[in-house]
Design a protein around this nucleic acid. Sequence first.
RNA 1: GGCGACGUAGCCAAGAGGCAAGGCAGGGGUCUGCAAAACCCCGAUCCCCGGUUCGAAUCCGGGCGUCGCCUCCA
Length: 507
Amino acid sequence: MPLYVTNTLTRRKERFEPWEPPEVRMYVCGVNLHGPAHVGHARSYVFFDVVRRHLEWSGYRVRHVQNFTDIEDKIIARAQREGRTLEDLAREYIERFLREMDALNVLRAHHYPRATEAIPEMVRIVEGLLAKGHAYVVDGDVYFRVTSDPDYGKLSGRSLEELQAGARVEVDPRKEHPMDFALWKAAKPGEPSWPSPWGPGRPGWHIECSAMSMAYLGPRLDVHGGGEDVIFPHHENEIAQSECFTGQPFVKYWLHNAHLRMEGQAERMTRSLGNVVWIADALARYRPDGIRLFLLSSHYRTPMTWRDDAVAGADRAASHLRAAVEAAETLLRRTAPSGRASGPALQLREKTARVRAAFRSALDDDFDTPGAIAHLHTLAAEVNRLADGIAKQLPEAGRPEDAVEAVAEARDTLRELAGVLGLRLAEPVPASVAQALRRLLEEETALRDVDGQGPPEAVLDRILEARQRARERRDFATADRIRSRLAELGVSVEDYPGGSRWRVRDS
RNA sequence: GGCGACGUAGCCAAGAGGCAAGGCAGGGGUCUGCAAAACCCCGAUCCCCGGUUCGAAUCCGGGCGUCGCCUCCA
């Protein structure tokens, strides 16, 4: 089934067909480096991460570019306030942004151009626009002449008259038309500046994305994305500049995500209002899978609210998915395949195939991530049901060795589909636990003979074996003590008829 | 003022005219040395009023409410 996406430009769901398949050129508007990123930014980048993962899963080769805005009024103001250089400030927030995106399992773009590194390209475009009569110079500033572009307003769906009617800002009288926007700003005293044919100055905001997308992806993009707040003026102006400069269509599909609001706040989350949850704070409270699951639990074009109970709920839902993978793995670790398949195993196979197809259709339908998540839960429940029956040795579950192949396939599918949403479904054993385990082996007499070498997962398996021996001799005091010591380390122990299982505890 | 979204169970949320997905929370049960996890069972006059249709959460009209954008912004 083909992919359909809602194109802001046409306001319709359209079949996705890139200019030159299987290549997809995707440019996503990046952050302004005047401060750290908040969970509203995370919503946008997690969403576009899913766009990319789904395109790649569908066989496209995606070239993904995301910019950093490192020159702009607020950055200059902050640098001056803190007595730091722009470079110093930019370096700090770029590093932090990438670290936080890595933590959220957002795939890295292929290029992260910075505005200040693309000044020559910008100057070249401005010169071209001047030569074609689409721009004019006033006192060292260069403005785009909106009346020279008959298409101006096509993205935001408004005419020049409509835009002017709602204007909230005082108009610079030197401009020919109130909606004309700056391509290049003459330097003010004390501000960083670059030489140009119009004197020292710095670029306007919009020109950077035109220049950087062209430099890395060529004049025509397949996908250009960002938050819906940048539709106007930013993306509107980008189209005007780019198309007037190249004479070609700039972007085939414009994708915009709706905003995230703070619980109890009437307005959307934005750094200038201060009503934000920093990504770093969210990561301290919730696991990455939980945060992603929450952010993807609403369709990307629906506004959503950051509510702690909802994020906590998504965090628990992530555990439920992870439990299915872990239950499958426990079974697979302990059971050799028989080469046969029981009735329940055949049913699981069929369900797995159905879920795979439904999951794909959901994402193909304009990235319906809430629908896709629902299908993931359906498969997880099927795996859990079978694994539960087998762990309890229920006759209707069939023989474990007859379920192995179907369970392995279901687990692989669950992993694969979750991976398209960027969910890891795994909780690695933290290094701190590995160290604490060695101490536990020394302190606990019942664990004296346990080998503490090797990866912590193996050590935990051996600890559970020793604990199992204690249970078998009905030494529950020891067994419970080991369990509670592990719990203190963040490892929970679950007992089943066929043996015990450990899990790194949720958050 | 102009342009545009949205309103589905306590909460989050999908839904391409034909018996209303999924999750979280809650209640009951199964399993179990205890615990935990998982599994099973339980929940909706789809904001209101009209209309079209054999049939509407879905289409049309009108209300009410919430939100976004109209040069800081993901």
